[in-house]
Design a protein around this nucleic acid. Structure first.
Length: 516
DNA sequence: TGAAATGTTGGGGCG
DNA sequence: ACGCCCCAACATTTC
């Protein structure tokens, strides 16, 4: 701390930074990855407390994510978030050094240039990241550079929660109970006021050199919808905790026509806010009130937070599930191969208004309401019988909150092929779901302007509307707005038939195993 | 975090 | 008044 203050003073307006008194000459790299915040950042706090000068670095290397390099929307967010992080670091007397990967050689170069003898980072849990980080830790240590890693992004790291026989949980409710039975997560750490700067900064790139943002600017919708960065995350949390949605979250979160969700998912993905901060805020709220509904609502969103933990748990223990079903027998399901159907789904031209509204919200804003994600996912997998991997790939490329663990869990849940998955016979009816969760059609009209003048009675099934109503609303089915690309009732029956065959095979296999 | 099919019940119209 | 039928509303089962 003393060192920090001394250096801050030395970095006054007339200082070049080279006159800093340097006693110990300990220098630490702080390797930012998906923890783009100063608040509750254990690696950052540890680096500062180690009495080292701190060199914050971010290394861009999508190749190391293997098949799952960030998509365009995610890269846009990353660029904004890195700018924000750099600004916050500058306010604390530091700055962010940007570099292009591969990570390990880049860290070694930066360590050499800055004279660092330690690297601090917060752990990631994707299979490729784990392998990369373990190799990096070994290589750094071999070269006499200390490597320290921490947990910033989970309440409970995946290997700390197992059943009594040591195997991972595969059922959410049991996992949830096990989490609640734990000692409560540590309190969040405060952001350091200042970061001790080194005498000289290593060479870094400008953000444009990382080419994160698209060449042609289609990001107006993203910019209108989001404020990436730590302050944006904090604002969003405040809005959510204090806003009218807070006490009614339990039900409001299912209403895409309202604003009842936290909309924190992209902030979470990039680590602009951590789960301990949210857990802590929830705890304070529960202690401060006796309102039963507020309790239930708070429980409901902590439950959502634990779903996120469950997703990381599953990804850690079953890393192949990003591409292949956890329940192997689902690989043999007779999936369709229909490029036109896939394209109609992607573009929001299926003829089912709630599905199309969701897909267009995704395309325009990089985000989709969670209830609608379930509806469009069910439609792709059950109505179109297209492989869930095609859906997860599209979400990956278009979501600003694209997250390997959450995306994998969500799609395997929908397809019924994952841990604690939806039962195969659960097929969402897009008309009923629309009526139930967007009863006035406000959400549909917002994202499907062709239907803007259609009344609430037919808004979720325009193909059944009397011609006179369609004319009055200026809707021309088949031209302005498509007719349904499949009939839901027959599509549903076809899916049940296909899935039932898998079910029979699964039971057969189970019987066989049982007799062995 | 579903929906359809099927079963049950009870009120009211009506002969 | 009574029994029969219809059917809405709700409950249960099934996919």
């Amino acid at each position: 701390m003393i060192l920090a203050r001394r250096q801050l003073r030395a970095r006054g307006p007339f200082s070049t930074g080279s006159s800093v008194l340097d006693v110990s000459s300990n220098i630490a790299l702080l390797w930012f990855r998906s923890d783009l915040r100063l608040d509750d950042n254990p690696a950052l706090t540890a680096a500062v407390e180690s009495k080292s000068a701190v060199v914050p670095v971010f290394v861009w290397c999508p190749e190391e994510e293997q098949a799952w390099a960030p998509g365009a929307a995610s890269r846009w967010w990353l660029a904004q978030s890195l700018r924000d992080l750099d600004a916050r670091l500058r306010a604390a007397g530091s700055r962010l050094i940007l570099a292009r990967g591969p990570s390990l050689p880049t860290l070694l170069r930066l360590a050499e240039e800055s004279g660092a003898n330690a690297v601090y980072w917060n752990r990631r849990y994707e299979p490729a990241s784990i392998a990369r980080d373990e190799a990096s830790k070994r290589a750094l240590t071999d070269r006499g550079i200390a490597a320290h890693s921490f947990n910033a992004s989970l309440l409970f790291e995946p290997w700390t929660i197992t059943k009594s026989d040591g195997t991972p949980y595969q059922v959410f409710s049991a996992f949830y109970r096990a989490c609640l039975a734990r000692r409560r997560p540590a309190d969040p750490l405060a952001a350091p006021r200042s970061l001790p700067a080194p005498q000289a900064w290593p060479l870094g790139l400008g953000i444009d050199a990382l080419a994160l943002e698209p060449a042609s600017d289609w990001t107006a919708g993203l910019r209108a919808a989001w404020t990436p960065g730590e302050a944006g995350a904090a604002d969003q949390l405040t809005r959510f905790l204090d806003g009218p949605g807070a006490e009614t979250y339990e039900h409001e979160r299912d209403r895409p026509d309202h604003d009842g969700t936290s909309r924190l998912s992209p902030h979470f993905h990039f680590g602009e806010i951590g789960p301990r901060r949210l857990w802590h805020a929830a705890g304070e709220r529960i202690e401060a009130t006796t309102d039963a509904q507020l309790h239930r609502s708070t429980d409901a969103w902590l439950r959502q937070l634990v779903w996120r933990e469950f997703a990381y748990h599953l990804l850690y223990w079953f890393p192949h599930t990003t591409n292949a079903p956890l329940r192997r027998e689902f690989a043999t399901l007779p999936w369709a191969d229909d490029a036109a159907h896939l394209r109609a789904w992607q573009r929001g031209l299926t003829g089912y208004p709630i599905v199309d509204a969701g897909m267009r919200q995704l395309w325009a804003t990089g985000w989709m309401h969670n209830r609608v994600r379930m509806i469009v996912a069910s439609f792709l997998v059950k109505d179109l019988l297209l492989p869930w991997q095609q859906g997860s790939r599209w979400f990956w490329d278009t979501l600003v909150d694209a997250d390997l663990a959450n995306n994998t869990l969500g799609w395997q849940w929908t397809a019924g092929c994952g841990a604690d998955a939806a039962p195969f016979f659960r097929v969402f009816n897009p008309v009923l779901q629309g009526r139930k969760f967007d009863p006035d059609g406000v959400y549909v009209r917002r994202w499907v302007p062709e239907l803007a003048h259609l009344g609430r009675k037919w808004i979720h099934e325009p193909w059944r509307a009397p011609q006179i109503e369609l004319d009055a609303a200026g809707v021309t089915l088949g031209a302005g707005y498509p007719r349904p690309i499949v009939a839901h009732d027959s599509a549903r029956r076809a899916a049940l038939t296909a899935y039932a065959r898998i079910g029979a095979r699964g039971r057969e296999a189970g019987k066989t195993r049982g007799t062995l």
